[in-house]
């Protein structure tokens, strides 16, 4: 995991479900991640992929990633170039899946983060600096086990290293 991440905010609201992130109608593309990733978050914001630049952040409110266990949801967010997801709260399975595939997820107060804001993030320390507004936010600390997994690059890599 990188020590510092820099990018722009793409803003979403409450209850962004895995169906909005990775719609069931593209179920057949699950074995073709680059193709599937072209539809990332399509049903929540159809222009997301067009606006997205590598390194940017997905920022949401409560219960991000609710619904199904499809790991493809965080996988395509990562594949599309997003470097971290910030939300007030996450659905349990999504949160775990994101860590397992090596995508930083941070639980923090996102109320003052607006579309287009530029952020500098130190995921391991849970620090978020809003360069646009000058404000600093602290994220809930990750469990040590999760940091280890993120640092290894994901659960698979972690298990392979420690077997």
């Amino acid at each position: 995991m990188k020590n510092e991440l820099k990018g722009k905010v793409h803003r979403f609201g409450d209850n962004i479900s895995t169906d909005l992130i990775c719609p069931g109608k593209y179920f057949h593309l699950r074995s073709n991640i680059p193709e599937l990733a072209k539809h990332t978050l399509e049903d929540a914001d159809k222009d997301f992929i067009k606006k997205m630049e590598p390194g940017d952040f997905v920022v949401a409110a409560e219960n991000f990633g609710c619904g199904s266990s499809r790991e493809h949801a965080p996988i395509i967010i990562k594949e599309s170039g997003v470097s971290a997801i910030l939300a007030k709260s996450f659905a349990r399975i999504f949160f775990r899946n994101a860590i397992n595939i090596g995508l930083p997820v941070m639980e923090c107060d996102t109320d003052n983060l607006s579309e287009g804001d530029e952020l500098l993030i130190k995921p391991a320390e849970g620090l978020i600096k809003n360069i646009t507004s000058g404000e600093e936010i602290k994220a809930a600390p990750l469990m040590a086990e999760m940091l280890d997994i993120l640092n290894a690059g994901g659960l698979k890599e972690y298990v392979m290293k420690n077997k």
């Binding site: 266990s69 499809r70 790991e71 399975i93 775990r96 899946n97 397992n100 595939i101 994901g154 659960l155 698979k156 298990v159």
Partner: peptide
């Protein structure tokens, strides 16, 4: 319920 990687492990 978990994701694919958790279940793989």
């Amino acid at each position: 319920g978990f994701g694919s990687t958790d279940i793989a492990v």
